[in-house]
């Protein structure tokens, strides 16, 4: 599964960010056409994101576009621009039911057919309401295009009639539900943004928490948050050493035709090998080990 720790939000109307976001090397660049873009700038932002997606600077990084809802005057045009631009993922805002996904999917398919592309645009559903959280299990399983579900905390807390706190008590139920729904459907789970960019301590503590909860990553609003997040998601040296041992043991067993893999007399099964591979992948992406360090 692709590594997606950091999804950097880039307001579609912010020229400097649209032009430079790739420089910060987030795992995914997520251009926003929705809440960060004023109504009068929707058309202009859409065109800028369309051209950015086609620009060579964005060919080596995964891209996503948060589009406006289909029932707004902008949704269809946003999807057309994103798909024609060759985006990897479309993020649906305010997903309440599986119909939201299926409707979006059919609009995307229509554009893909029209332009004759073989690329299958993936979907990321943002769950931002009580109804969405309750339906998360169904939503997570309803489409093969769906690569993950994400919590959108601002709208969610408004919907359940509370507000954000430092501790995040108000998000506990939603986080748990979204994570379980994603894991059960074998897709990824992403946490909401932490918008106070000045509060580094608060950010670090929230990232540690959601990492422990099992989230694959988090949406970010500021490039400075990328490095902090990657640091926290990076494996420890002890974990890396362990992962190498597991991989070596597995290779040893394979070479010698051994049916059972073991380290120090303890059995190593497939999920453990998968976890070790993932640790090494993370370590390499975080720059902790080079390509030849195996």
């Amino acid at each position: 599964m692709k590594l997606r720790r950091s999804m950097l939000f880039v307001p579609g109307a912010n020229t400097a960010m649209v032009c430079n976001a790739y420089v910060y090397k987030p795992d995914t660049v997520m251009f926003d056409l929705e809440d960060s873009v004023a109504l009068a700038e929707k058309d202009s932002a859409r065109l800028m994101v369309y051209h950015a997606l086609k620009h060579f600077a964005y060919q080596d990084v995964e891209t996503a576009v948060r589009v406006n809802p289909l029932d707004s005057p902008y949704g269809h045009l946003d999807i057309e621009a994103a798909v024609r631009g060759g985006v990897d993922i479309i993020r649906l805002p305010k997903t309440d039911t599986i119909d939201d996904i299926l409707d979006m999917q059919s609009v995307i398919e229509k554009v893909e057919r029209k332009i004759g592309t073989t690329k299958k645009t993936q979907l990321l559903a943002a769950i931002e309401s009580a109804l969405g959280v309750v339906n998360a299990v169904d939503i997570a399983r309803c489409s093969s295009r769906l690569m993950g579900i994400a919590l959108g905390a601002e709208d969610y807390v408004r919907d359940i009639r509370t507000q954000r706190t430092k501790e995040g008590t108000e998000l506990a139920a939603a986080r748990a539900q979204i994570l379980l729904a994603a894991r059960a459907a074998k897709i990824q789970a992403f946490d909401s943004v932490f918008s106070d960019v000045r509060d580094k301590e608060g950010f670090v503590s929230e990232v540690k928490k959601i990492k422990n909860l099992g989230f694959d990553g988090k949406s970010l609003v500021n490039p400075n948050q990328i490095y902090m997040l990657h640091d926290i998601y990076a494996p420890t040296q002890k974990e890396i050493d362990w992962a190498f041992e597991v991989i070596e043991a597995a290779e040893h067993a394979k070479k010698n035709g051994l049916g059972v893999i073991s380290i120090d007399g303890r059995m190593v099964d497939a999920p453990i090998i998968a976890r070790a591979e993932r640790t090494i992948y993370l370590a390499r992406t975080s720059g902790m080990i080079g390509e030849d360090d195996e």
Binding site: T15, C19, D43, S44, L47, H51, H55, L77, E80, A81
Partner: peptide, 20 residues
């Protein structure tokens, strides 16, 4: 270049009252 194109096209589409 991408910004110049996007801004110019946005202005033209506005001036023509047209969808892309």
């Amino acid at each position: 270049d991408l910004v110049i194109k996007a801004r110019l096209q946005a202005a033209v589409l506005r001036a023509c009252e047209s969808d892309p």
